[in-house]
């Protein structure tokens, strides 16, 4: 009898533990590789195996970030970049969604517009830079336009593709209940394309961050891209790495915001990705 009790406890304990472990460990697992690399490099520099001049140790990068933040420089650069990405992303999303929806919904428009859009898509977007600078000047407008162009294509393709691939059988349910055109869009097409739309938004945002660097390298007096260029010209690798780290954090953060905002709308999905880690 007395033997049974510890045996029961033994079986109960490990069952609760892995759940807690995995909840904490899953995000931590992703941090393991970068943190180990950073600590390793810090150690290498600390022990004097490298002077860390061209590749400064994490502590130096962190110090640079703190200095930039203290002087108020950092927030100025971050705000400038965020504004550009925000404006370019908004324009790209609106244009991409409208054009994608028209091409996806209306076959004639697809045949009319899609070949042109696809041809434009084949042009490397950076090739527009000289033209945009000529047309729109060196200041904000050309930068926002470039980012918008980068964001436009994945959104356009995503929306058009999603509408074209909506299950005909589901649309037929809408027809049986005699939904009007707008009701069909609101009650059937929009919810059906939402998962693909969220993916398109995330891809578009990623490209937005990519293009803001290109735009700010064209010639800017503020912004994280400017920090990169400034670091290169003045030989400050810690500043370049600081800007890169902030890009990574902001990119991940904005992507996460889209994910979190969309999550309540996509709870219904029955997909491999919705397994909850099982």
């Amino acid at each position: 009898m007395t033997v049974d009790l510890p045996a029961l406890e033994q079986t109960a304990a490990p069952r609760a533990a892995p759940a807690r472990w995995s909840r904490l460990a899953r995000p931590a697992l992703g941090l393991l590789v970068p943190v180990m690399c950073a600590l390793g490099w810090e150690l290498v520099v600390y022990l004097g195996y490298s002077n860390g001049r061209l590749v400064p140790p994490p502590s130096k990068v962190f110090q640079t970030i703190v200095e930039l933040a203290r002087s108020g420089e950092l927030s100025r650069h971050i705000l400038a970049t965020l504004w550009r990405v925000g404006a370019g992303f908004a324009l790209g999303v609106v244009a991409g969604t409208v054009m994608g929806a028209i091409s996806g919904y209306w076959d004639f428009a697809k045949r009319l517009l899609d070949p042109t859009v696809q041809a434009l898509r084949a042009i490397p977007s950076l090739a527009w830079v000289p033209l945009f600078v000529l047309w729109l000047g060196i200041f904000e407008t050309s930068k926002v336009a470039l980012i918008a162009v980068g964001v436009f294509f994945p959104i356009y393709l995503g929306v058009m593709g999603a509408i074209l691939s909506v299950d005909r059988k589901i649309v037929e349910v809408g027809r049986v209940f005699r939904l009007s055109g707008p009701a069909m869009i609101r009650r059937i097409l929009l919810p059906a394309v939402l998962p693909a739309y969220v993916v398109a938004l995330r891809v578009g945002l990623g490209l937005g961050w990519m293009f803001v660097v290109a735009a700010e390298l064209i010639g800017a007096s503020e912004g994280l891209g400017y920090l990169l260029l400034d670091g290169q010209q003045l030989g400050k690798p810690a500043q370049i790495l600081a800007a890169i780290v902030i890009f990574a954090i902001l990119g991940k953060l904005t992507d996460w915001l889209i994910e979190v905002a969309a999550a309540p709308l996509l709870r219904w999905q029955d997909a491999f990705g919705a397994r909850g880690g099982q």
Binding site: K169, I170, E172, V176, F177, R178, A183, R187
Partner: peptide
């Protein structure tokens, strides 16, 4: 064209996956 007095049930349930069971049943009662 589809008529208010004619309903149809298909081979597959064709429920709208983004609506709850109750909302699916009430779909035609907008």
């Amino acid at each position: 064209s589809p008529h208010a007095k004619i309903g149809i049930i298909f081979q597959e349930p064709r429920l709208l996956p983004w609506l709850s069971v109750a909302d699916n049943i009430g779909f035609g009662l907008a």
